[in-house]
């Protein structure tokens, strides 16, 4: 059952990511990415990361992707700006190099993995992760809020026409 879910949603996540990289139209790419992020949320659940799966859908597939779609619509790229599809030798070299890099990563990754022991009941739940973040990582958590505030102010500054 778990293996079937992993194969199904893993394949869909890979297809969605390929859709982002291959689709000519950025709007289509963004929609592919939303699908891939949903599939990744399912994979997060398969690793018993329930809170992170919910956050993936809320923060990524929800907030961040809406931001992307807004900017794509705002820029309103015309067809000629998209440029013709070219497959140059440089791109082929980049793909080959990345496949080699992927092989270098995947082999030790596969060797590092094993069947994990049973998890406690609060593993990956809101309670478990919340207790960890608010006890052990309170300062980084508060600094994250400052970072987000700075990012909001910076984004408004950058995107504003004139101050």
């Amino acid at each position: 059952m778990e293996l079937a879910l992993f194969v199904l949603f893993g394949t869909l996540a890979v297809l969605g990511s390929l859709g982002v990289v291959l689709s000519r139209n950025p709007v289509r790419g963004a929609l592919w990415l939303v699908g891939a992020l949903f599939c990744l949320a399912v994979l997060f659940i398969l690793t018993d990361a329930h809170l992170l799966a919910a956050l993936e859908v809320l923060v990524y597939a929800g907030a961040v992707m809406v931001l992307f779609l807004f900017v794509i619509m705002l820029l309103n790229l015309r067809e000629e700006e998209l440029g013709p599809r070219r497959f140059t030798p440089v791109k082929a070299l980049a793909v080959a190099g990345t496949v080699y890099l992927g092989w270098l990563m995947a082999v030790p990754m596969w060797k590092a993995g094993r069947v994990p022991p049973a998890a406690p009941a609060d593993y990956g739940t809101v309670e478990g992760v919340g207790m960890l973040i608010f006890k052990n990582y309170l300062l980084p958590f508060e600094m994250t809020s400052l970072l987000l505030l700075a990012a909001v102010v910076g984004a408004v500054m950058l995107a504003k026409r004139r101050m």
Binding site: F6, T47, M109, A112, G113
Partner: peptide, 9 residues
Amino acid sequence: MLNTGLFLV
């Protein structure tokens, strides 16, 4: 639970 190597690959 599945082998975590699958997720890592």
